[in-house]
Simulated assay, not measured.
Amino acid sequence: MNLETIIDGFSRDQQSIAMEMLWKRLSQSPDAAAPPSWHQDIVAERVAGLQDGTESLSDWADAKKRLADRLR
């Protein structure tokens, strides 16, 4: 049985607990879980967009609503 099958068998609460456990373990060794290099490219693009006016910042509540709407 693979890990994905095991996780699929978990309840929503069990999945949430497993995710928190994994995050805690990963965050204890941040160097071992460094983000991929393309993340820096995206950040640089967005900062440049803010500086040249082609991007704007969003209020966190608005951003959460847009994300929730996308997932529906």
Rank of each mutant, 00 (worst) to 15 (best):
N2R: 11
L3Q: 12
L3S: 09
E4N: 10
E4G: 07
T5D: 11
I6F: 02
I6A: 02
I6P: 01
I7N: 00
G9K: 07
G9L: 00
F10C: 12
F10K: 09
F10V: 04
S11M: 02
R12C: 00
R12Q: 06
S16C: 04
S16V: 06
S16Q: 07
S16D: 05
I17N: 04
I17Q: 06
I17W: 02
A18H: 06
A18L: 14
A18R: 07
M19L: 11
M19E: 07
E20L: 12
E20W: 04
M21P: 00
M21G: 06
M21W: 06
L22G: 08
W23E: 12
W23V: 15
K24L: 10
R25K: 15
L26H: 11
S27P: 01
Q28N: 12
S29H: 14
P30H: 00
D31M: 06
D31G: 14
D31H: 11
A32N: 12
A33Y: 15
A34C: 05
P35E: 08
P36Y: 02
P36E: 07
P36S: 13
S37G: 04
S37F: 06
S37Q: 13
H39M: 13
H39Q: 11
Q40P: 01
Q40D: 11
Q40C: 03
D41G: 07
D41P: 01
D41W: 09
D41V: 14
D41N: 12
I42T: 12
I42H: 06
I42F: 05
V43M: 11
V43D: 04
A44E: 15
A44C: 08
A44L: 09
E45I: 09
E45G: 10
G49M: 03
G49P: 03
Q51A: 13
D52E: 13
D52R: 02
G53E: 06
T54F: 01
T54K: 02
E55H: 14
E55W: 05
E55C: 10
E55A: 15
S58N: 10
S58P: 00
D59C: 09
W60T: 12
W60A: 11
A61M: 04
A61D: 01
A61N: 03
D62P: 01
A63D: 10
A63C: 09
A63G: 07
A63M: 08
A63V: 00
K64W: 02
K65R: 15
R66F: 01
R66I: 01
L67K: 15
A68H: 08
D69K: 05
D69H: 03
D69Y: 01
R70V: 05
R70Y: 03
R70L: 10
L71M: 14
L71R: 14
R72C: 02
R72P: 00
